[in-house]
Write a protein that binds this DNA or RNA. Structure first.
Lengths: 205, 205
DNA sequence: ACCTGAACACCGTTCAAGT
DNA sequence: ACCTGAACACCGTTCAAGT
């Protein structure tokens, strides 16, 4: 079988995405990636400036997978669509949250989704200041949910700690964690409704 | 002047907190910390098992600074107190968000604040499932807000990207970012009100 | 008991050298 | 033009050795 592996940015990014998805951001070192590509570590620097540019290109791909809502629906429906898309993407690529948390990167490919969210908030009757604040709230929720659920799989540190809490001093903590069962529950949709009730008022649908 | 520097866990943790607060988590390496303590890198391993234990002890200190609310106030007041405390602490020690995001650690010293929050939600009439979901929402908001505002100081990547957006395609994006001024605005208190409106209903005060 | 230096297995990145 | 090896300045951590 012939070897066609001429190195290019796309195969580097694709391979990096695969490693990050499967083993997390911590496992995605330049040297590890080079092994995966069967190439010397330095060969990649001909195609990608540095690790930050690589992460940025990876983020570009993921941001491109965020599908903007159809313009037809109600404001509430459109906002729900954007947030659900972000949720889906964060769940698929948990490394994105780490990149956001530690590097503070962003991709312009997310702009269509942002535009749709701002437009929907404006259509719902919010002024510019309210749109700015509410959109921040929605994004912060999406980030925070991803961050928390990222480390809530299986038996997290926090869950373990709460399970061992003294029932005399912390009865509510014990009740809340005891009733939760073992697998993490999916709160996203219900909490997004609460959030939208707070932002738009419960009457908006 | 005499040298009293016998190494102990407390001075290690205190020095580590100072470095993390001043220069961020990335600058807090074991080797860098050793230089700060004027000691060989390996000396610290007599007092602290590894880097994770060090971070855990640092988190303990910060969690201990989260003041639980007085039992007297209304549910809404008590919840606001807990969340505002978390916000204050995340603002003071931004490295905590990185630790939560990448390591998934937690400290039992946060239990009094959690207990107070759960109790307040129950007092407001929420059942166990609602309390579980709503408390998750509140914490996710606090984490997300910290994560976002952490990298929003000065001219963030995201802000830069939005400022350069095409006004034809993304009019709302441009309007929202243009009106925002240069320094990041403080949305926390207003957004917490929105959140509590959604969780408790606007009538609760 | 407490601290040290050398060493191991890693990082990202630069730079001169190879083809 | 594209890739490589050696090197630099870092990591966390282990282990034998010093006092």
């Amino acid at each position: 079988v012939a070897r066609l592996l001429t190195l290019d940015p796309d195969t580097i990014v694709t391979t990096a995405l695969r490693v990050a998805r499967a083993e997390g951001l911590a496992s995605l070192s330049m040297r590890r990636l080079a092994v995966e590509l069967k190439v010397s570590a330095m060969a990649m620097y001909r195609h990608v400036a540095d690790r930050e540019e690589l992460l940025l290109r990876m983020l570009d791909v993921v941001a491109g997978e965020v599908d903007p809502p159809a313009a037809a629906g109600s404001p509430r429906t459109r906002i729900t669509h954007v947030l659900t898309e972000l949720h889906r993407v964060f769940r698929q690529d948990t490394w994105v949250v780490e990149v956001l948390a530690t590097e503070g990167l962003a991709s312009p490919r997310i702009l269509p989704a942002m535009e749709a969210m701002y437009a929907a908030l404006a259509d719902a009757g919010l002024d510019l200041a309210e749109t700015r604040e509410s959109s921040a709230l929605l994004l912060e929720f999406a980030y925070g949910e991803a961050l928390v659920s990222h480390h809530d799989k299986a038996e997290s540190f926090a869950r373990q700690m709460m399970r061992q809490a003294d029932p005399e001093r912390f009865p509510h903590v014990v009740a809340v964690v005891a009733g939760a069962g073992n697998e993490p529950r999916e709160h996203f949709a219900a909490n997004l409704e609460r959030l939208l009730d707070g932002i738009l008022g419960p009457q908006h649908n």
